[in-house]
Amino acid sequence: MLLTERETQEGLLVSVCDPDVLGETFESGEFSLTVEEEFYAEDAEEADEDAVVGALARAAVANIVGREAVDLAIENGFVDEATVLDLGETRHAQLLRM
């Protein structure tokens, strides 16, 4: 998975995506998502499951795209499956800690 961590005034922003969805656009009904290389891959590192879980544990905000990445977030309790968007061939979830 591709993992990016950015410090913001609101806390740590984490973006995670499966490499195979990078640059793709997915649609479902009124929703459309383009997995922008600038956001998900610029300064990203290839990360294993442990690194992604660690980053999500520290995140104030996270954007997660791809079946592997979203499923990992669900399995580890960061995201409720009921809040996940299924967009054609992929999945998208967001995490916001308040």
Results as ranks from 00 to 15, higher is better:
residue 22 L to I: 08
residue 5 E to C: 06
residue 36 E to P: 00
residue 85 L to T: 12
residue 66 G to C: 06
residue 98 M to A: 14
residue 94 Q to S: 08
residue 85 L to K: 11
residue 24 E to Q: 15
residue 74 I to H: 08
residue 32 S to I: 05
residue 64 I to S: 14
residue 76 N to G: 10
residue 18 D to F: 01
residue 47 A to M: 06
residue 36 E to Y: 10
residue 88 G to I: 01
residue 75 E to L: 01
residue 94 Q to C: 09
residue 61 V to F: 03
residue 32 S to K: 13
residue 72 L to F: 02
residue 97 R to M: 04
residue 82 A to P: 00
residue 59 A to F: 03
residue 77 G to C: 11
residue 56 L to W: 04
residue 19 P to Y: 05
residue 57 A to F: 00
residue 2 L to V: 09
residue 93 A to I: 07
residue 92 H to S: 10
residue 38 E to V: 08
residue 49 E to R: 10
residue 40 Y to F: 12
residue 74 I to N: 04
residue 62 A to L: 00
residue 46 E to H: 10
residue 84 V to D: 12
residue 19 P to W: 03
residue 54 G to M: 10
residue 3 L to R: 05
residue 56 L to Y: 03
residue 60 A to D: 03
residue 15 S to H: 02
residue 81 E to P: 03
residue 66 G to M: 04
residue 52 V to I: 11
residue 56 L to R: 04
residue 66 G to V: 13
residue 55 A to D: 04
residue 6 R to W: 00
residue 52 V to S: 08
residue 28 S to E: 15
residue 51 A to Q: 12
residue 11 G to D: 02
residue 88 G to A: 08
residue 65 V to S: 12
residue 24 E to K: 12
residue 16 V to L: 06
residue 66 G to E: 08
residue 59 A to H: 03
residue 4 T to M: 05
residue 16 V to S: 07
residue 98 M to Q: 11
residue 43 D to E: 15
residue 49 E to D: 15
residue 93 A to F: 00
residue 6 R to N: 05
residue 62 A to V: 10
residue 21 V to A: 06
residue 87 L to D: 14
residue 62 A to M: 09
residue 72 L to I: 10
residue 97 R to D: 01
residue 20 D to Q: 09
residue 61 V to T: 15
residue 53 V to Y: 12
residue 35 V to K: 08
residue 95 L to D: 13
residue 93 A to E: 13
residue 20 D to F: 01
residue 18 D to T: 14
residue 33 L to R: 04
residue 33 L to F: 10
residue 30 E to W: 05
residue 37 E to T: 07
residue 97 R to Y: 00
residue 7 E to V: 09
residue 64 I to W: 07
residue 49 E to G: 08
residue 77 G to H: 01
residue 25 T to I: 08
residue 27 E to G: 05
residue 92 H to I: 09
residue 10 E to F: 09
residue 15 S to W: 01
residue 89 E to W: 03
residue 70 V to G: 14
residue 69 A to I: 11
residue 58 R to S: 01
residue 49 E to Y: 00
residue 60 A to K: 01
residue 88 G to H: 02
residue 76 N to I: 06
residue 46 E to M: 09
residue 77 G to Y: 00
residue 55 A to R: 00
residue 69 A to Q: 12
residue 86 D to W: 00
residue 76 N to S: 07
residue 80 D to C: 03
residue 47 A to L: 02
residue 14 V to E: 05
residue 4 T to S: 11
residue 74 I to Y: 02
residue 67 R to K: 12
residue 62 A to K: 06
residue 15 S to C: 11
residue 94 Q to V: 14
residue 21 V to T: 10
residue 36 E to W: 05
residue 77 G to Q: 12
residue 67 R to L: 13
residue 34 T to R: 07
residue 8 T to M: 03
residue 40 Y to V: 02
residue 80 D to N: 15
residue 12 L to T: 03
residue 61 V to M: 05
residue 24 E to C: 13
residue 6 R to E: 15
residue 97 R to S: 02
residue 33 L to S: 04
residue 89 E to F: 02
residue 73 A to G: 08
residue 93 A to D: 11
residue 77 G to N: 05
residue 48 D to S: 08
residue 18 D to Q: 11
residue 19 P to S: 14
residue 51 A to T: 04
residue 21 V to G: 09
residue 10 E to N: 01
residue 41 A to Q: 12
residue 54 G to L: 06
